[in-house]
Design a binder for these strands. Structure first.
Length: 861
DNA sequence: CCGCGAGCCTAC
DNA sequence: TGAGGTAGGCTCGCGG
């Protein structure tokens, strides 16, 4: 090959973390530049400054409904907009679909995004209807250029710039496109602080860096004067330049604490000093950057939302762990123990956090070691739950920046897809909150009554992606709804509620179109996942699994967002039509099955539990003796029955699937609580709803109930009753280790000042009608008084000391506590109540369990 | 002792 | 100004 001459610019792939905009130039010559921050596929931190996009929004007039009949009076109305201050240009009209039908729509272009709110107000007062008027400017870029999180730019780096990144580019909008998703080699920093309870000062800090370049994790300890700690942590951030900053509960503790100490050591307006302490952003150290109230030099949080800083994102390991794991308790040591049970030394609590000042005075080295360890654990946690990869997959599928996938709301993800398509299909985009509010609740799914008892051989059928399928099948969309007053409606589907939606031949809805695409996308990733598994390609398995999961999450989010009262593309008929069709489908199937003489044991929303007639009378549990059940034979009988039934009752888009085969199903007679022995597609115990599934239960109850369930599924009646009595009595006699009796409940409270250091900082009455009657509030109060902080919504753990009092007396439980006394009778009664619901199906009530004998035997005939 | 509402958490 | 939904079981405190 000869010498290669570069005619085109080089190409760089980047994963975008977050973006912001800034004004350049003065007055009428000013324009807006969008800075996108991210990390390139080669591992460089990058800023891409994009110019060429102007802020716009759209409007229509009630007086003008056709492009062909624009009178001079009409034109006057439009011209009045053109002469408004800060209006650069009015273009149009183009015809767009609005919920008043097809209408001419004009576009207003202005110079700066911050002019939009005042212009919006002005046009509203002039009686125009506004569209696309509340889209954040960075989102506008993503929508207009159809960008997703992973992009490719054609550009050469620029040498002079103000940003604190490895490489900077300045491009026009034609130089950036979406590319195939790739695993972005993010650099993550995790940190932790130890602080004084006496005076709130920072005693020491520790931080870890994990680069995705194959190098080992490194860490640093920060000690000394508080100002030195703050300054060197800030230098550390810039030196290692992380994309993602994590830590355990940093949103509600460490970040607020750093901000508070920054203020303590600086005066108002001393922006240079403040930047030295907390200027973590990837931007210039200027007064302007320091005073930005979001995405600036200094991390900020607007109201109760997430923290923002220029160019990096915060990902709180507490929040991630809570969402992914739903742990029974939420302390760092508990979550670490849950994930890494074998690494006991890693999370043994050897420092008394409620006595930090004394610990710091006497055992400084140990406290620092403890701090280093607690700073590292969030990295392990995020890795273990694959938080970054999964979030990246969601960002990729929803076509949003990483920050939105991490800290944004569900409606932002849906918006990203729906608005893009609306623009393409010439559908005007109404503003959030513009829909008529929902009147009361809509009716939801149908739940079938269930009788107490053991039911052998039950096939579980369910509708595949029920709500999305209905939305596709019935073409349910904001854009396909027909007004009930319409005298001659086009061809349509009519919901049981009477609402009408055009057929897809007439006009395909945006939402059904998107859902179909997502379904296909999921199938593709599932297929690729299967191939990757066969080929033992771990990277591909991880990628396709994360992607198919992200698609599933997104698909299932559509119904909720569209059934909500405030979403921009909703109408109250959408949600109620979806659920009405769902109820009609499932009730129809149940009725048909029953007419055929089949026994429907249970059903919830999209599932149906049917007994297999051919197997009734056949023993359903395997025992060790010679008469063991021929499981293979029965499984295939069940499979035949289930698949045939599913096929027979599948209709159009309502596809029934044989989901599970149970050799036995048990219910004590309450909806949403059952257990079963699954024999197909794998063998496992299935439990729903019962205390074993609940995070506000206690471990001894959970363990006892699980054992009881094993007996139930084998129909070992004598054993199960004897076991239940034995467990209840162990509690009655206080023979159970108190660590097995920890109760945990989430506790809310309006936080008036973060971090919380005194009872005055939290208003519990804002969340509870009678706060002092709530055990979790009394526990939270005790913990705040001990200097252990408080986060609204976080679980608190406690032991019941005296359950005979009303309200019950409780003591907080924290990890180092070992010898708390407890009210054995209270716990025995709770256990007996829970187990009694099960044993009652076998003739033993909770009362019987408490006294250890059967009083009700008198009536058992 | 019972019924009711507040609150939590789950199933889907 | 902030924002997925409804159905349902169960515990506790309170008042009759």
């Amino acid at each position: 090959m000869g010498a290669c001459i570069h005619l085109s610019m080089s190409s760089t792939k980047i994963g975008i973390l977050t973006g912001r905009y800034r004004a350049v130039g003065e007055g009428d010559d000013s324009s807006t530049i969008i800075d996108l921050f991210g990390r390139s596929s080669e591992g460089k931190s990058v800023v891409v400054s994009v110019s060429g996009l102007c802020p716009t929004f759209e409007f229509s007039s009630v007086h003008i409904d056709s492009i062909d009949e624009i009178t001079p009076e009409h034109q006057q109305l439009i011209d009045a907009v053109n002469v408004l201050e800060h209006v650069e240009e009015v273009t149009g009209p183009v015809m767009k679909w609005t919920h008043f039908g097809q209408r001419p729509v004009w576009t207003v272009r202005t110079t700066q995004p911050f002019h939009v709110p005042s212009l919006r107000k002005k046009l509203e007062s002039m009686n125009f209807t506004l569209y696309s008027a509340d889209i954040p400017f960075v989102n506008r870029l993503f929508l207009d250029l159809d960008l997703a999180m992973h992009v490719e730019i054609q550009a050469e780096p620029i040498l002079e710039h103000e940003f604190r990144v490895d490489v900077a580019y300045e491009i026009g909008i034609e130089q950036i496109t979406t590319c195939e998703p790739f695993p972005v080699p993010f650099t993550i920093c995790s940190f932790d602080l130890e602080t004084s309870i006496e005076n709130n000062s920072i005693l020491c800090g520790a931080a870890w860096i994990e680069s995705n370049d194959g190098s080992r994790r490194t860490h640093k300890v920060f000690v000394g004067q508080e100002t030195e700690i703050l300054a060197s942590m800030t230098s550390y951030i810039h030196e290692h330049d992380p994309d993602i900053i994590t830590g355990y509960n940093i949103d509600n503790f460490d970040l607020p604490r750093i901000k508070e100490r920054m203020m303590r050591h600086s005066k108002k307006g001393e922006w240079q000093r403040q930047s030295e302490f907390f200027g973590w952003g990837r931007c210039a150290q200027t007064e302007q950057e320091a005073s930005r109230n979001r995405d600036g030099l200094i991390p900020q949080r607007l109201s109760n939302r997430s923290w923002t800083v220029c160019g990096r994102i915060f990902m709180d390991a507490w929040w991630q762990a809570r969402q992914a794991l739903r742990p029974k308790r939420e302390t760092l040591s508990f979550v670490a123990q849950l994930l890494f049970p074998e690494q006991e030394g890693k999370h043994k609590m050897d420092i008394d956090a409620s006595n930090m000042d004394e610990e710091w005075a006497n055992r400084r080295e140990e406290v620092m070691e403890y701090c280093v360890r607690d700073a590292e654990l969030p990295l392990d946690i995020l890795n273990e739950i694959q938080a970054v990869r999964r979030t990246e997959a969601v960002a990729s599928v929803a076509r949003v920046v990483m920050d939105t996938a991490t800290n944004g709301s569900t409606s932002q993800l849906i918006d990203s897809l729906v608005i893009r398509l609306a623009d393409k299909k010439m559908v005007a985009v109404p503003r959030t909150g513009s829909a008529e509010p929902k009147e009361g609740q809509i009716t939801g799914g149908y739940v079938h009554d269930v009788d107490a008892g053991l039911y052998p051989w039950v096939a579980v059928l369910d509708f595949k992606s029920m709500y999305p399928s209905i939305m596709i099948g019935k073409n349910i969309c904001y854009t396909t709804r027909i007004e009930p007053s319409e005298p001659s409606p086009p061809p349509h589907h009519k919901a049981p509620t009477g609402a009408m939606f055009m057929t897809s031949e007439e006009k395909k809805g945006l939402v059904p179109f998107l859902l179909e695409g997502l379904m296909e996308k999921r199938d593709e990733h599932k297929r690729a996942l299967g191939i990757a598994k066969q080929q033992d390609d771990a990277a591909a398995v991880g990628f396709h699994d994360a992607m198919q999961y992200a698609v599933k999450i997104l698909m299932n989010s559509f119904y909720g967002v569209f059934a909500s009262g405030f979403y921009r593309f909703t109408h109250r008929d959408l949600g109620s039509s979806i659920t009405a069709w769902a109820r009609q489908n499932i009730k129809g199937v149940i009725t048909s099955l029953e007419q055929e003489g089949l026994s429907v044991v249970y059903s919830d929303t999209d599932s149906i539990f049917v007994q297999v007639p051919e197997l009734q009378g056949v023993a359903y549990f395997s025992s060790n003796d010679a008469e063991s059940v021929d499981l293979n034979l029965h499984t295939s009988t069940m499979f035949e029955f289930g698949t045939q039934l599913a096929q027979r009752f599948s209709k159009d888009s309502a596809v029934l699937e044989f989901e599970k085969g149970l050799s036995v199903f048990f219910s004590h007679g309450a909806k949403k609580r059952y257990l079963g022995q699954v024999i197909w597609p794998n063998e496992e115990m299935l439990v729903r709803g019962y205390e074993t599934q609940r995070t506000d239960s206690f471990q001894f109850l959970i363990d006892s109930m699980n054992t009881l369930f094993q007996f139930v599924l084998k129909d070992q009646r004598d054993e199960l009753v004897a076991f239940a009595i034995e467990q209840v009595h162990a509690l009655k006699r206080n023979q159970v280790d108190v660590a097995q009796l920890v109760l945990s409940k989430s506790c809310k409270g309006k936080v008036l000042k973060t971090p919380v250091t005194s009872l005055r900082d939290v208003d519990f009455a804002a969340e509870y009608a009678n706060p002092d009657s709530m055990a979790q509030v009394r526990v939270a109060r005790q913990m705040i008084e001990r200097g252990l902080g408080f986060t609204s919504g976080m679980k608190v753990s406690f032991i019941v000391e005296d359950g005979s009092k009303s309200p019950v007396t409780v003591k907080p439980w924290w990890d180092e506590e070992e010898s708390l006394s407890y009210d054995g009778t209270y716990y025995a009664e709770r256990l007996a109540t829970a187990l009694g619901r099960i044993t009652e199906a076998f003739g033993w009530t909770a009362k019987d369990l408490m006294q250890g004998s059967r009083q009700s035997s008198l009536f058992s005939f």
